[in-house]
Every structure is written in C-alpha cells, then in structure tokens.
Computed example of a mutant assay.
Amino acid sequence: MRIVVIGGTGLIGSQVVKRLGEHGHDAVPASPNSGVNTLTGEGVEEVLKSADVLVDVSNSPSFADDDVMNFFTTATTNLTKAAAAAGVGHYVALSIVGTDELPESGYLRAKVAQEELIRESGLTYSIVRATQFFEFAGAIANSAEQDGVVRLPHGGVQPVAASDVAAVVGRTAATAPIGGVLEIGGPEEFTMDGWVRTVLAHRQDEREVVGDPRAKYFGTFLTGRQLVPNAGAQLQPTSLREWLDAGN
C-alpha cells in the first residue's frame, strides 16, 4: 500500500515511516521540508495522488490557544478535502486520551475539533488516542519550573513509549479502518508529579518536583484520572523503568 505520513519526519512519524517500510509498504514522509504544507495546502493534493492511506501525526508549531486551534482546523480541513478528492480509503489520525474531558485546555479543545472534522468528513477513518509519551517528561518539567522547583498537578497519567505509539499507528494504517477511536497507554499509572519526579531522579536532575493542586497542565487543572485511558484500552508493553534503563 502507498501510505502518506503527514508529520513523517517527527518523533512518531519517522518511526511510523520506518516500520511501514520494513513491512513492505510504500511509506511517504510528508512535511513542510518536503514541500507539503497542510496549513497553506501547498503540495497536499499532489502527495495524496494514488495514496491508499493517509496518516496524520503532525503537530502545531505553536501551542498558543488560537494558533493551535487554527492549525488543527485548517490543516485537517485541507487534508480531508484532498483525501476525499484523491479517493484515499483510510484516514488515520493520532490524538490524545482525555481530549473531551478537559475543555479548559486550548490544546485539547483543538484536538476535539480535529477529531470532529475527521468524523464529519465522510472518509473511512481510525483515530488513535494515546497518553503522554515518556519522551515528554523533561519538557513538561522545564515548562513547569519556577525558581528551581517543578510544580505539577497530582492527577493521574499513564504515559507510553513513543516507539509503542508508532507501532500501533503503523499497524492501524496497514489494516482495516476502525471507524472510531482506539485508546492506548503505557502499562502503569502514575501521578503527573510522580512520573516526572521518577524521570528526573533517574537522570540525576536535582530539581524538586512538587505536587501542587494549583498547577495547570496545558492550561487546565488536572485533579483526577482524565488523562488515564478508559477500560478496554490497549495497554502497551514498555514500562517506564525499561524505557529509562534503555538510556533515555
């Protein structure tokens, strides 16, 4: 199959392209660097010609509320229209567990809008909702640091290795459309502050991590298990300890 991967040079996309290629598919990485700009529409129609599957693992370059909403609504509108015109048989999008449970987050509101556009497009589709990636722990700590102290919510998370996410996205792209949502997460549940504290301690980062009920995550309070996948989710094999011990 010819599978076009939007965001195909990023953390997830590059691994999806590699895995699909290893299984004999014609995996085409598409990004602004390759002349495909989903915001302007440049190169989108051309790259989707004769494509069997479209995989969208792209992300907004800015996380400001208006910017991220504009990115996902504009890009998804351009992609769905071009995919329909090209006769693409399967639209696969990567989203986030908990998108519709945290409406105060501008980023998650934008992901909800993206999902709605895909559902309403008339295309056959699969939406893979993943939990936070292990790889994001350091960036989360940096964004939450104040005067040398990392203040994070105490709500639940069930982070997952990016390699496991890429494997699921690749398998989904190479099989029949789900016609709905597949949730995935890692094998273990943590609190947000506990997860990041574990990663920083492993890396001998001496910053103090404090669980703070006033701390926000992507603009919203996280007090419960909104970011933990629902029952029936596909839990992936790589544990946080295995991931850390692998040199991450």
Rank of each mutant, 00 (worst) to 15 (best):
A174P: 09
G180V: 10
V92Y: 04
V68M: 01
L182Y: 00
M192W: 03
Y107D: 04
G7T: 04
V53P: 08
F63H: 08
V160I: 15
G156A: 12
F218Y: 11
N78F: 04
V196Q: 01
S50V: 14
E22C: 14
E242L: 03
G156R: 02
E206N: 13
Q146I: 14
T76Q: 10
L48T: 05
V28D: 04
V4W: 07
P153Y: 01
S143Q: 07
G35R: 00
D26Y: 02
G10W: 11
R225S: 15
G211W: 04
P229R: 02
Q234W: 11
K111R: 11
M1L: 13
K216S: 15
M69I: 08
H23G: 13
R109F: 10
E135D: 14
M192D: 09
L244Q: 00
F72H: 02
A141Y: 06
I12E: 01
R214N: 15
T124V: 10
E242A: 08
T223Q: 06
V28T: 06
L152Y: 05
G156F: 02
T131P: 08
T220N: 05
A246G: 15
Q158C: 13
V68K: 00
A30I: 06
A215F: 12
T198I: 03
R214E: 15
I184C: 03
P29F: 05
D100W: 00
N37R: 07
E104N: 15
T124K: 11
S50W: 13
D205T: 09
A144Y: 06
P61G: 13
A64C: 06
T74S: 10
Q132V: 12
R151L: 12
P229G: 07
V160N: 06
G98P: 08
P153V: 00
Q204N: 13
F134I: 06
G13N: 11
L11V: 13
V128S: 05
P61L: 13
G10V: 11
A64I: 06
G8E: 10
S58D: 06
T76W: 07
N70T: 14
V44P: 05
A82L: 01
V168P: 01
A85I: 02
V44W: 00
T124C: 11
E42Q: 15
R19K: 12
G35K: 00
V17Q: 04
K81T: 12
L227F: 05
L123D: 04
P103S: 13
M69A: 14
I96Q: 08
R214M: 14
V210Y: 03
I127Q: 01
A84P: 00
A246H: 10
T80N: 03
V169F: 05
V199D: 02
F134L: 05
E104M: 15
W195R: 05
L123S: 09
